[in-house]
Design a protein around this nucleic acid. Structure first.
Lengths: 339, 339
DNA sequence: TTGAAAGCGTTACCAG
DNA sequence: CTGGTAACGCTTTCAA
């Protein structure tokens, strides 16, 4: 079933069918209707490959995210979902590419074989070879996250520095003096993972500003690691009364560790951090946290990318978000520190 | 940068370049090397669209899953991740399609515009118009889940009937006599969602077999709904001592409801169900559950689909999995029922 | 308002 | 072992 067949049945030329369908040039109402009838009857739809070949656009965007070695988190899930839906709203399809770096086969296919019109990059690193590569090629892309030199790029990101700082100030205001920071896994930190670095930074600076005693930890992306990490924290400094975490996947384990240590949240110990809200609401007591608006970010990223695709000369645009801390039930005034 | 340019520089014909690259016909070692050198130098990669048009294969598979109206669950995340990686291992890309039904624009694009070679269907319903549609078209697809008439289809699925029954027997063996079933949202049940129906079925039959007193509930896919559901359960029958759930997203809320009601798990109340293991391990106490091997299922689905794509005449194959219950910490012997 | 024809970049068949 | 050439199915320019 191809355009020639439709043309033949309608007794017109293929170009007329093409124009009737795309509306890119006027077609008499009569022939348009005749063509439409036949198209509907036969359920004809133009081949995506042929169309892509002819006009150079695939109507597909690539979503690049690292492979699951480092487990997927709930945030990522929300991103993916919202990107796919936002893209569908613009009549774009989404091609998933599990690429950690430049040299990935999958990444090369995406670009080299011109499978997509543009790309959205997740899990940005401060020095990100994928972002650099795309920028060098002038390939339309939007990052979810900020590299070290984000000025001339398109992105939507969270201000992790400010967010972590806000958590610190919240705890300091409640009277906490000895607090811990639970980061993502060390391996992510080593590879320059943006949120881990900026979050750590914001935490450290704000804590210094408030004159707090702090320790910082890396923690695997799962409950078991969270539990172990919490034990380590209390072992290193039993007088710790609060923690800030960026590690959503470890959250359940942190809570469990606290329970096992006999620390009641929030009476004896306060917990806060940066977490997507549906996960913050899953734990008991519900987590007071800066809610990551993952769904909104995905949508914004798509909107930005579509804009960039439509106006290839548009100047870079960014969204830097700083969601407020949602007060729930996991933080409270510091008690008398145990010594 | 196209194949003609490579051919020109190498002083050979385009077909020779094509064959040198694909290996589909012998090429003298000399010219092969010369071509390869130029290809490497220029970083040439054939255009996916042109190739797809010429040979009718897109090297892309579609992953069809419903839109997020009914929030995404952790299981779905694991599926998506494993499908993408397994596909990459076979050099396939994955196109995401958020389609609930047949008539979705996105679904139509996938098929009608021939964007993919085959499809994997998630979130199967007992009567599934997408599955029917694909079967009628003879379009290669693999379902994750079983329709009401799965005999001649390709699928990988969990035996939810057996799984729910196993949970019931486990609880009955521990002496529980009054148990509740917490299902997915009513809307999913109404639309014929497979796991919800088969799970309910297995639960009901096994409970009857063991002579248990049961109540069954539908529950929204989030923590708040879980908490409300638990309150309802204890309100309807305060003597309930255990529950079985298929609802991963509500789990945190169920636990919270139990805590608020002063029921200690597992001393006063046992909880079990069917849940992906990383989520079972997130809650405290860790959930004794039939672990959904989501990652393995995704991989199996891709393997099946690739096999079907390679041998279009292959007879249907299925994987029906019945993972055992992992004993963790959320179930225990029934105490004296409260009246 | 319409048609003819030239691409788009591959692959694969037919000759040599 | 290699080259020429006809598809693949669409879009778009050029002419009428």
């Amino acid at each position: 079933m191809n355009i020639g067949e439709i043309a033949r049945r309608a007794g017109v030329s293929r170009s007329t069918v093409s124009y009737a369908l795309s509306g890119k040039r006027p077609v008499s109402e009569d022939t348009r209707r005749k063509i439409q009838r036949i198209v509907d009857e036969l359920g004809y739809q133009p081949s995506a490959s042929a169309r892509a070949l002819a006009n150079g656009r695939t109507s597909t965007i690539g979503l690049v995210f690292p492979p699951a070695g480092n487990h997927y988190t709930g945030m990522q899930l929300d991103f993916i979902g919202s990107v796919v839906e936002a893209a569908a709203a613009h009549d774009y399809d989404v091609l998933l590419s599990p690429s950690g770096v430049d040299s990935d086969r999958s990444f090369q296919r995406l670009l080299g074989e011109r499978r997509v019109d543009g790309a959205i990059l997740m899990e940005i690193r401060l020095e990100d070879d994928r972002a650099d590569h795309l920028a060098a090629l002038g390939f339309p892309s939007v990052a979810i996250g900020r590299t070290a030199h984000p000025e001339d790029g398109w992105y939507v990101a969270l201000d992790h520095t400010a967010l972590a700082a806000a958590c610190v100030h919240h705890l300091a205001d409640l009277g906490h003096r000895r607090i811990a920071f639970v980061n993502r896994p060390e391996q992510l930190l080593r590879t320059g993972y943006e949120s881990a670095h900026r979050g750590l930074d914001g935490f450290t600076k704000a804590a210094a500003e408030r004159g707090l005693t702090v320790r910082t930890y890396c923690c695997g992306d799962d409950a078991a690691a969270g539990q172990a990490c919490l034990e380590q924290i209390l072992h290193d400094d039993p007088a710790t009364t609060a923690l800030v975490t960026l590690n959503e996947a470890a959250l359940g384990g942190l809570y469990r560790g606290l329970a096992h240590a006999g620390r009641h949240v929030p009476r004896d110990f306060s917990v806060t951090g940066v977490v997507a809200n549906r996960w913050a609401e899953t734990v008991t007591p519900q987590l007071t946290a800066a809610d990551v608006p993952a769904a909104e970010m995905g949508r914004l990223a798509v909107d930005l990318l579509v804009e960039r695709l439509d106006h290839s000369d548009a100047p870079p645009r960014q969204h830097l978000l700083t969601p407020p801390i949602s007060l729930r039930a996991s933080t409270g005034p510091a008690g008398v520190p145990q010594t």
